[in-house]
Design a binder for these strands. Sequence first.
DNA 1: CAGTGGTCTAGACCACTTG
DNA 2: AAGTGGTCTAGACCACTGA
Lengths: 176, 176
Amino acid sequence: MPAEASRIAGEIDRKSGTPIYVQLREILRSYISASCKPGAALPSERDLSERFGLARMTVRQAIDALVGEEVIERVVGLGTFVRKPKLDLQVKLTSYSEEMQRRGMVPAAKVLSFEQIAASAFLARELQLEEGTPLVRFRRLLLADNEPMSVDENFIPAHRVPGLLDDAPPLRYTTF
Amino acid sequence: MPAEASRIAGEIDRKSGTPIYVQLREILRSYISASCKPGAALPSERDLSERFGLARMTVRQAIDALVGEEVIERVVGLGTFVRKPKLDLQVKLTSYSEEMQRRGMVPAAKVLSFEQIAASAFLARELQLEEGTPLVRFRRLLLADNEPMSVDENFIPAHRVPGLLDDAPPLRYTTF
DNA sequence: CAGTGGTCTAGACCACTTG
DNA sequence: AAGTGGTCTAGACCACTGA
């Protein structure tokens, strides 16, 4: 059962200069973090339109933003729901470099190496492959505003990226 | 000077079942990759509305998607412009796992390890640090639809992520 | 000044889900 | 059948940019 729109605190100030959908977005964000658990249903878009006196398209614009942030998700025919926050310390760091790149702060990523290797025992186990299976390894230096940010190493089963290194160089085992 | 909307090939099929904004998005994508250089201006939203016989909000929905993909960008008062593509083969692969995650295809990323180490000579050189500088290293197994996708290893100078591993464990040197 | 993207409205029809 | 999100329309006013 969806939440009652009337239970959401906050009002829209049409003279504030702040776009209405931004105001509503923050009202919803507060409501979610204060009163919602993962899986909880938000009021329907039409209920929110009525509650705040807005066009549904404007409500959708606010919701769009939160969906983009992966705070909530929409399910057709059902409603809009609060997602599980993935705010573990490690996961937070995990997305650090990705965030930087997504925000356009890393126009540069220097490729340090790019080659085909054979899966070590460790990698084979984790990737559920046979030891020695060809992997593509590439290392990158990620830059944020021209400053070295992190070094990134990535192993992908070669069969997932066909046609890329078909001039197969001799396999070497990795130390990892 | 903005491009002439009339020079854009393609038509909207209102019976196809495919959302109009998706059709227009792909028409624009083709036009951009075939006929545009970075910095080139797209026709204005109003011109596109007229050219394809659509409401401006619908045109904006198509453009929104391409802006979200960082293919184009909007500048208030000026227009919409083609961005520099970052589409090198390696970079293309580089963004593979990131793409998967962004598209929501990787709700799971298992953290294999997470620890503090000392920068090896190689890492110190690339990150412009002194050898032995504390780094945070974490390894992740990325899953796409529950299938192992790739193994990712990341090195970040510890000073960039303060307060995370302050109970500093003894430094060990990495093999890499 | 005319043109641009940014925002907003008040409707509409659709496919989809659940009772 | 009733409710949901998904899509679409045809307008509107705003702040901003350039000439």
